[in-house]
Design a binder for these strands. Structure first.
Lengths: 338, 338
DNA sequence: CCACATTATGACACCGGTGTCATGGTCAAA
DNA sequence: TTTGACCATGACACCGGTGTCATAATGTGG
C-alpha cells in the first residue's frame, strides 16, 4: 500500500501537480473536464492532502491554540467541545494549553508556545481575554486571536460573549420576586471581567427595587469551591443572617449549600441559594441550584469559526456577538419565610 | 525581523545546513569546536527549529491523539493534564478527540482522523483500550498506541493502569469493617473493563468474609449520574433496605446521596455510601464521599511518555505498569446502626 | 612512511505541497 | 485577418528541515 501523494494523483490523472493543487484549493482557471478527471482520481486513490506539506509551503500550522485557566472542569470541556467543533469543520487542529501564569511569566510562556508550536491563532478564554498585556503582545506579534466571554471590547477584534450583567440581574430579580431583601453576594476572581459584570447586575437589580446596597453582605471569592467555603462561613455568621445568597458561580454556591447543610440549615426554607453557569454540579446536588445557563460551546464555536476565517482572509471589521443566557430555577430558591 | 531558519544559522556559523542539523539532533561526528560554534549561533539568533518542516522530512507530525468518551469532565481533564505534561517534555502536541462512536462507525471515524491529522500515536483512555476491534485496526495500520486504565493486556503493548479490583476490594473491606453486611453495588458501563474489575473486587471481599453474594443487591449503571439515580431508586426501594451502597464511581454515588437525602434518609446514619475515583464532586457535597483515588494524571503521563519513546525507537518489550490507588474515607460511611 | 580505517563536513536530492511565471490556445473586437 | 485579452496548463523554484553519499582531514598500525 503505497502512499498517495499529489504526485501520484497527478500522474494518474495525466496532469501536472499544479493543476491538482488548483483543484484541491478550488482555484479558478481549471476546465470542467480536467477538474472532474482529477476529482475522480481523488476518489479512486482515496487521496487526502498532507496538511504538513501544505503547512510548510504556506507557512501555516493549521493549529489553533486554546488558552485557559479555570477551576471548573466542566467549563473547560465545554470550551473544548465548542472549539473542536469549529476546528473540525475547517480542517484545523486544536492545541489545548492550560496555563496558570500571570504577567511577565505569562508572556514568556506564550512566546515559547508560539515559537515551538507555530500556532495560526489563539482563543482566549476567561480570564485571558481580559489581560491587556497579553493581548498587546499578540497584537505586536501579529498573531490572530479571539476572545470568549470577555467584557473587554476593542475596535477590530473578535469577541463572543454572553451578557453576564443581565444574567446576574435576572437572578437577583428572581430572588427579590420571592420576597428576599437581604441578599448576600459572593464575588468571583478579580482578574475575570465577568466578576465585575455579575456584581453590577446584582447591584442594578437591588437599586431598581429600592433595596439599599449593603457592603457587609458582599464577600470576595475567586470562583473556586474552596473560596466559596470561606465566604459562606462569613455570610452564615452574619446576624441577622441574610435570607438568600447569590454566588457568582455554581461551585461557590455548592460550597454555601454544603456549609449551610452542615449547620443544619434547611435550603431553601431557611436560606435560598443561587449560582451562575449551570455547571453539572448544580443538578448533581440536592437541592438543585437555581442558576444561569450560558451557551459556552456555542460562544466558543462562533469565536473559533470567526478566528479561522480571519486567518484565511484578514478582515478589518470587528466581529462582536452577544449570545443569550437564561435563568434556570431549581429547588435551592424559594419564597422567603415570614 | 526576519525569520530564523536553519539556513540563516548555517551561514552565520559558516557551516552547512547538514552540520546544523547534526547539532540539532545530537548526532555524532561533529567536532566539539563546531558544535559549540553552532550552539552559540542558536542562542544569538534565538533559533527554534520548525517542527512542520521537520515533520515533512521525517514523515511525522509530532502529534499524539488522545481518544476519550467519558461522562466525567474531571476525569477527562486529568487525562489531558497527564498527556500534556508528557507531550510538552518531548516537544509533541496533543490532539484531543472526544468520540462517542462504537464498532464500525468508530473505526471509520478513527481512520479519517488518522488520514487527516497524520497522528504519530494514539492514547486510548477508557473504554477505548478495551475495544479489540479498534486495537486490531491500529495494529494493522501500524499506528503505535498506549492503553490507559484498561485491564486488557497484550504481549507487546504499552499499558498503564491501577488496580481496580484491589481498590473495590478495599472499599468493600472498609464497609464490612464498619459492620455492614448488606451492601448494594452499582455497576459501571458494560463496555469498560474497569466495570468487571470493580465488581470482582466487591465480590472477593464479600467472599473473604463469608458474606453471601446477593444478586438483588446489584444494579446495572453506566457511570453517568443519571444511571445512578435509576439504580438508587431500585436499591432504596428494597426491603429490607441495604445498610450501605457502593457505587462504581462518584457520580453514581452522588446520585444515591441525592436521592437518599430527598427521601429524608440521613447519610451515613441511615445508610452509608461509597464511590470510586475521587472526583471533585466527592468533596463538594455533604457528606463527603468515601472513595478510591487513582493517579490518573500519572498513569496517562507514563503511558504517553512511553508511547513517544516507542515512536522514536520501536521496542519489542511490552511496557506494563500498575500504579497504586488509595482509599479515602470521608463522612459518607459510618458504623452500621444496630 | 604508507595503507587503511575513521571522523568531520558538505553537496545534493527529497519530503509533498504552493507560488510565480511562461506558454500556447481560444475568442471577440478592430 | 490581425491583435490583444483571457483562459488553461505546466515547468520550476521554494518552504525548512533530513537522508544519502562523496570527500577531505585526521588517526592508527605495520
Amino acid at each position: 500500500m503505497k502512499k498517495v501523494t499529489i504526485n501520484s494523483v497527478a500522474s494518474h490523472a495525466g496532469v501536472s501537480k499544479k493543476t491538482v493543487s488548483r483543484v484541491l484549493n478550488n482555484e479558478p482557471n481549471v476546465s470542467v473536464a480536467t477538474r472532474e478527471k482529477v476529482l475522480a482520481v481523488f476518489k479512486e486513490l482515496d487521496y487526502t492532502p498532507n496538511p504538513i506539506a501544505r503547512g510548510l509551503a504556506q507557512n501555516r500550522s493549521f493549529i489553533i491554540g486554546c488558552l485557559y485557566d479555570n477551576p471548573s472542569k466542566s467549563y473547560i470541556t465545554r470550551v473544548q467541545t465548542g472549539a473542536l467543533a469549529a476546528c473540525q469543520e475547517n480542517n484545523y487542529n486544536l492545541l489545548i494549553h492550560p496555563c496558570e501564569f500571570r504577567g511577565e511569566a505569562l508572556i514568556n510562556n506564550i512566546e515559547q508556545l508560539l515559537q515551538t508550536s507555530r500556532l495560526d491563532g489563539i482563543v482566549l478564554t476567561p480570564p485571558f481575554g481580559d489581560f491587556a498585556e497579553l493581548v498587546n503582545f499578540l497584537k505586536s506579534k501579529k498573531i490572530p486571536y479571539a476572545r470568549v466571554a470577555s467584557a473587554i471590547l476593542e475596535d477590530d477584534s473578535i469577541s463572543v460573549r454572553s451578557n453576564d450583567e443581565q444574567g446576574a440581574f435576572e437572578v437577583t430579580e428572581h430572588l427579590i420576586s420571592l420576597g428576599h431583601k437581604s441578599i448576600a453576594f459572593i464575588k468571583g476572581h478579580p482578574d475575570h471581567s465577568a466578576t465585575q459584570q455579575r456584581f453590577k447586575g446584582y447591584r442594578r437589580s437591588l437599586a431598581s427595587h429600592g433595596i439599599e446596597f449593603n457592603e457587609r453582605l458582599v464577600e470576595e471569592g475567586n470562583f473556586s469551591y474552596h473560596s466559596g467555603v470561606d465566604s459562606a462561613r462569613s455570610i452564615l455568621d452574619l446576624s441577622p443572617r441574610p435570607t438568600a445568597v447569590f454566588a457568582s458561580n455554581d461551585y461557590m454556591a455548592a460550597a454555601v449549600l454544603k456549609l449551610a447543610t452542615q449547620r443544619q440549615l434547611r435550603v431553601p426554607d431557611d436560606i435560598s441559594i443561587a449560582g451562575f453557569d449551570n455547571a453539572p454540579i448544580a443538578r448533581h446536588i440536592w437541592p438543585g441550584l437555581t442558576t444561569i445557563a450560558q451557551p459556552v460551546e456555542e460562544m466558543t464555536k462562533q469565536a473559533v469559526t470567526q478566528l479561522i476565517s480571519h486567518i484565511a482572509q484578514p478582515q478589518d471589521e470587528p466581529f462582536q456577538v452577544i449570545l443569550e443566557s437564561r435563568l434556570i430555577t431549581r429547588e435551592s430558591t424559594a419564597q422567603v419565610k415570614k
